[in-house]
C-alpha cells in the first residue's frame, strides 16, 4: 500500500433507474505513486462512475478503494484534501463573469484551503508552464480549449497528490493538448503527482500513460502498460486507399479484422502472405493502388479490443 496512490479492490456499482444496469462489476487495480493511469473504454463502460467513486462523489455498492492512503467511503474528507478534479462538463463549470485568474483564486482559496499569496503565485506558475497567456481575460471570452485549460489549472493549483481528469484533452487543439501532456509529465516527474484520466484519445493515452485499464460494461478487460495493450493488436496493418467491405476481403489469408472508411485498414497475421491475394481482388486488380504496411497502433488495438467484445473478429 505504501507505493499505491490509488488502490481499488472489488468495486461494484449498480444503477436501477431508468433502466437497471451494472456500471462497475468487481473492478480491482492499483495505481502507483507518480504514475499516469489511463481509463479506456467505450461510452458507458463505467469510466466516469469509477472516477466519481474515487473522487468521493459516489458511494460504491460493494468493494473498497483508497486514494492517497485514505478510504474513499470512511475517510472521504481526507481523500478530498488530497485530490484534484476536472470533470466531464468542465469547460462550463466556472464563473463566466470572472477572469481566469479570479476563478483560480476563488476556487483554490475558498474551496481548497490555499493561502491567497500562494494561489496567486501558483496561478502564474501554471499559466507559464502551460503556455496560457490569458489569465486576465474574462472566462466567458475564452475559447473552449482555453476554458478547458483553466479547468486543468484549477485541478492542479492546490498541489494535490492525486488528480482525476475526465477527458482532459477535450476541446484542446493539438498544440495545447501537447503542452498539457508535457506539463503533466513534468509534474509527475518532478513532484511525484499521480494522475488518473479517462480518454478516448489514443495518442494521449500512448504518450502520457504508464499504465492503463480497459473497461467494458463495468468489467476490467485489460490492465497494463499501453505497449502491452498495443501488442494485443498483434496483427500487421495494411492500409488501402479505398473502401473495401467485409465480404470482399473475407478470403484474405490470416485476416483478423477490418476497419472501413474512405480508406480501409486490414489487420492480418502476416502482411507478406496477404498482399498478393489482396492485389488480385476484383476492386484492386490492375489498378493503381496506394498501400501501406505497418505495425498496429494503440488505436487499432482499442478498436480490435472493443470489437472483440462484440463477439466478432471483424473490427
Amino acid at each position: 500500500m505504501e507505493e499505491a496512490a490509488v488502490e481499488v479492490d472489488g468495486i461494484k456499482k449498480r444503477y436501477t433507474v431508468p433502466v437497471p444496469s451494472t456500471a462497475l462489476d468487481g473492478v480491482s487495480f492499483t495505481v502507483r505513486r507518480g504514475e499516469v493511469f489511463g481509463l479506456l473504454g467505450e461510452n458507458g463502460a463505467g469510466k466516469s462512475t469509477l472516477i466519481r467513486i474515487l473522487s468521493t462523489l459516489l458511494l460504491p455498492d460493494e468493494g473498497e478503494a483508497w486514494v492517497a492512503g485514505h478510504d474513499v467511503v470512511k475517510e472521504a474528507s481526507l481523500v478530498r484534501r488530497s485530490i484534484g478534479y476536472a470533470g466531464q462538463d468542465s469547460e462550463k463549470s466556472a464563473y463566466w463573469r470572472l477572469t481566469a485568474r479570479q476563478n483560480l483564486l476563488y476556487f483554490s482559496v475558498a474551496l481548497r484551503h490555499v493561502r491567497r499569496e500562494e494561489a496567486e503565485e501558483r496561478a502564474e506558475e501554471l499559466a507559464k508552464g502551460l503556455g496560457f497567456s490569458k489569465l486576465d481575460r474574462e472566462f466567458s471570452s475564452l475559447s473552449g480549449g482555453e476554458k478547458q485549460m483553466v479547468i486543468i489549472m484549477r485541478s492542479l493549483i492546490h498541489g494535490p497528490s492525486v488528480v482525476f481528469m475526465d477527458e482532459p484533452s477535450k476541446s484542446l487543439d493539438p498544440l495545447a493538448a501537447r503542452r498539457v501532456r508535457e506539463y503533466i509529465k513534468r509534474l509527475v516527474r518532478e513532484e511525484g503527482l499521480t494522475v488518473m484520466l479517462t480518454t478516448h484519445n489514443m495518442e494521449e493515452a500512448e504518450d502520457l500513460c504508464n499504465q492503463m485499464i480497459f473497461l467494458e460494461r463495468g468489467r476490467v478487460l485489460f490492465v497494463g502498460p499501453p505497449a502491452e495493450f498495443k501488442e494485443m493488436g498483434e496483427a500487421e496493418v495494411i492500409t488501402v486507399d479505398r473502401r473495401l467491405d467485409e465480404d470482399e476481403v473475407q478470403l484474405l489469408p490470416g485476416l483478423v479484422g477490418i476497419r472501413s472508411g474512405a480508406s480501409t485498414r486490414l489487420f492480418v497475421k502476416n502482411a507478406a502472405e496477404a498482399l498478393p491475394v489482396l492485389l488480385q481482388l476484383p476492386k484492386l486488380a490492375g489498378k493503381a493502388v496506394k498501400l501501406r504496411v505497418e505495425g498496429p497502433t494503440l488505436e487499432d488495438a482499442y478498436f480490435r479490443f472493443a470489437a472483440g467484445l462484440r463477439e466478432s473478429q471483424v473490427v
Binding site: R80, Y85, G87, K92, S93, H113
Partner: peptide, 15 residues
C-alpha cells in the same frame, strides 16, 4: 451548478 457540472468540483472539495 447542476447545469454546468460545477457541482462535481464543489462536492469533491473538502469544505
Amino acid at each position: 451548478e447542476l447545469t454546468t457540472g460545477l457541482i462535481d468540483y464543489s462536492f469533491s472539495s473538502p469544505v
